[in-house]
């Protein structure tokens, strides 16, 4: 049972992610999750507002199936394969608790301080979720890919543009955590 409920170590998870990429390559497709956001905009009629969304989104239906599968996978894993807690480095957990009042490391999968449904009525939390999402969506399309498209697919193919993008991901992430978090959460 431990094998099912315990988190999978990195040396199991990483190779399995590579396997997903290769299955899609052999199917003639490319592993990339953020392009679905563009497809969804097109389906919603965004083509009326910008040329960028005027493309044959029906060709991208396969990737929407991957998305639906990922939703199902998340349901299965959280309901039947996990105790839904994440243990992190105790020093980091302590820092989260002391500096930002996030006390749930080791007790939850996502911090309820930010992701509990009743927190949506808190304007501060709501803006964090919306702005965070906005930056992810805008940045992923501007950079032409996200973690899957650049950090996994692109770097596996030794693409310099993907290396630049991934360096950008980390510059942005480090600036957010080390410079902006103290301003936002204090």
């Amino acid at each position: 049972m431990d094998l099912i409920y315990e988190p999978w170590p990195w040396y199991v998870s990483g190779p399995l992610i590579a396997l997903v990429m290769f299955i899609l390559l052999f199917a003639g497709k490319q592993f990339g999750m953020s392009s679905n956001l563009r497809t969804m905009c097109s389906i919603g009629g965004a083509g009326k507002a910008a040329d960028f969304f005027r493309f044959d989104w029906k060709k991208e239906r396969w990737n929407l199936m991957v998305v639906i599968g990922a939703v199902i996978g998340g349901f299965l894993a959280s309901h039947y394969m996990s105790n839904n807690t994440v243990e992190i480095n105790p020093d980091i957990a302590q820092k989260l608790s002391q500096e930002y009042g996030i006390d749930s490391a080791g007790e939850a999968y996502l911090p309820p301080e930010l992701f509990a449904s009743d927190q949506l009525s808190n304007p501060f939390v709501l803006s964090i979720l919306i702005i965070g999402g906005f930056l992810v969506g805008f940045g992923a399309r501007y950079a032409g890919g996200c973690t899957s498209g650049h950090a996994i697919s692109g770097l596996s193919n030794l693409q310099l543009p993907s290396l630049i993008a991934v360096i950008g991901f980390f510059i942005g992430g480090l600036v957010m955590i080390h410079l902006l978090y103290p301003l936002i959460f204090n």
Partner: peptide, 24 residues
């Protein structure tokens, strides 16, 4: 790639999720 990547990274760290995990 650099500017887009930085914008993405800011959001990734703020929301704590990138597109794949959002669906999950």
């Amino acid at each position: 790639y650099l500017i887009g990547g930085i914008v993405f990274g800011l959001g990734w760290a703020l929301a704590g999720a990138c597109p794949g995990p959002m669906y999950v």
